[in-house]
Structures are given as C-alpha cells and as structure tokens.
Nucleic acid binder design. Structure first.
Length: 287
DNA sequence: CCAGACGTTGTT
DNA sequence: GTCTGG
DNA sequence: CCAGACGTTGTT
DNA sequence: GTCTGG
C-alpha cells in the first residue's frame, strides 16, 4: 500500500517535470507526508473554446471523502484505492471517469515486518527522480457550489518484485508517457485508463532502510530519508552486547561470592541460614 | 420497494 | 482492542 | 502508514 | 449520489 511518501523537490523542478505553467502555492520540501495532510496534486483543466487544457498544481487533503458525504467525520477517508476494482466500487467509479490527478512524489515508505518489529524502508524511482502516482480526487462543495474541501486518494496495484518482499501492494506509478492520458479530461475509456495502472518496472526501483524517525507523522526532517548508518548500528549493537557480557560476568562473580559465603555458613551450622526469619525463631529452634 | 453501505490494509 | 490525529 | 489516546466535571 | 441486499 502507500501510507507515507516524500516530495522534497523544489517548485522549479516540480513545475518543469509536470509541465505546470503557473503555480501559486508555497511548497516546502516534505520528507514524511502522512494521511490527512495537505498535498500538492496535478490536475488538468478542461479545454474550452477559448482556452486549451492546462495543468495546474492544487492542494488536496490526502484521504478521499466522497462528494455525497455531508459531514466528513461520518466516514473514514480512503487513503488508497485498489486499481483492480475501481470500476466496481461506487465510491471511486465516478472519480475514475471525471476526477483523476497526478500525485507528485520522489519516494514512498513501506514498513517491513522483521520479527515483531516493523522497519521502515524508503523506495525511490530512478534514483530519486520525481514520479507521478495515479490519484483520484473529490471536491465537496456547499449547496452554492463553493469549494469546502478537495480530497484525494492514491491508487495501489500489486507490488513488483522489488517491493513485494517488503509489502504486497505499491502505489500505481504512471509511466511518464502515460501521464498525459491519465490527466486528460477527454479520455473516458475505462479499459484504457485501467491499463495504465501496473506494478512499476523492477529495474527502475531501488530502496534502502531508514530510521524509525519516519514512524512519527510529526517528523518531517531530512532525517526521515537518511539511510540507516549500518556501521554505526553495528557499533551500537556491539557496544550493547559488550555491556551485556560485562554485566553477566559481574553478576556471575557476585553469585560465586555469595555461594562461597553460604557454603562457609553451612559448614559451621547444621541448619541452613535461610531457614531463619528472625532472631526469635532462631532461639526457639535452639531450645 | 426501502435501508444501509459506500473501503483498504494487515492480521488472526 | 480500536479509534483519532498527524 | 504509525503514534497515542481511550474522559468528565467543575473551575480558572 | 448510487448501488447492493433483503
């Protein structure tokens, strides 16, 4: 699935990569985008007689809430939508035809089960390049038509061979050449659209372990994308083991001393020392 | 017809 | 255990 | 996705 | 709003 991602490239890079003419948003680098947060999405305007279709960058809350829902609190926002079943699901069917978007990213996180723990891993496409995740969006409006909130969801597909050892699903990353068709307001052929949603090319994906910093959705620093320092980790592990062995040896030494003492006591007394709870008991026993 | 859901992921 | 917030 | 809360009353 | 289940 896709439950966290990164979009740390700057304005200029994003605009150039996705062919955006004008942008009115302030974009700070994001190293840990979490559900419910505002994210940039690429939408294409509908062409009119006067104006050709243009791509615009808008903001959208991650977690799709259908247009028919009055109170967003009554429903669980959908952060993902299965690509395979978009046409069957009433929640997404309409959006598939009318409200497709690109969700720009430069990495996504998955958590790998390692024993009882879950280790975060960051995946990249072509060594950290910008890519587009296929998304759908909804716009809830007042009865007067005023926009209340725009929400979006990231489409998922089966994981490719690079991702599947970590997780069974991955975001639907569009081939750059397919982005235009996905955005097009003209294309209404569902088969054609669904055919664009595939596990990405294995060779283009690479990944590396990151620290647990990313676990907390409040973290949003470059530390979230820093590779785990394996040498430092090994050193820390070694230090821990050394301390453990040291403590173990110290404990063994103490136990040995104690044993020697109680052996001495046993030699000078018929009754084990442990049996006496108080001086009174000791006296009673002797009488 | 009306009522009630509308969804994904991971885990058991 | 399950829900909410980020 | 993970982390962290999970609640009420009355008072400030 | 629209579909599914009863």
């Amino acid at each position: 699935m896709c439950g966290r991602y990164t979009i740390a490239h700057n304005h200029k890079e994003i605009m150039e990569r996705f062919g955006i003419e004008q942008m009115f948003l302030e974009l700070d680098p994001r190293y840990n985008v979490a559900p419910s947060q505002m994210v940039p999405v690429v939408i294409e305007t509908k062409a009119t007689d006067d104006m050709p279709a243009v791509r615009v960058l808008e903001t959208s809350k991650w977690g799709l809430v259908p247009g028919f829902v009055q109170d967003a609190k009554l429903i669980k926002p959908m952060i993902n939508a299965r690509g395979e079943t978009l046409l069957e699901k009433r929640m997404f069917k309409n959006a598939l035809f009318k409200r497709r978007c690109l969700i720009p990213a430069d990495g996504f996180f998955e958590w790998m089960a390692v024993g009882k723990k879950r280790q975060p891993v960051r995946f990249q496409v072509t060594d950290g390049a910008l890519f587009a995740m296929a998304g759908l969006y909804e716009e809830r409006t007042t009865p007067e038509g005023e926009l209340i909130e725009r929400t979006c969801t990231i489409i998922t597909v089966a994981a490719n061979e690079k991702v599947s050892p970590v997780h069974s699903r991955m975001p639907a990353i569009l081939k750059p050449d397919d982005e235009a068709l996905w955005l097009s307001k003209e294309c209404g052929d569902p088969e054609k659209l669904l055919s664009l949603l595939n596990p990405y090319d294995n060779d283009a994906i690479n990944f590396y372990r990151v620290s647990a910093t990313v676990n907390n959705a409040r973290s949003d620093s470059a530390e979230c994308i820093a590779p785990v320092d394996l040498e430092a980790e090994a050193a820390a592990e070694a230090a821990t083991m050394a301390a453990f062995e040291e403590a173990k040896a110290a404990r063994a030494a103490k136990t040995a001393t104690r044993r020697a003492k109680s052996t001495k006591v046993a030699e000078t007394s018929d009754v084990p020392e442990q049996a006496y709870l108080s001086d009174e008991l000791r006296e009673l026993n002797q009488n």
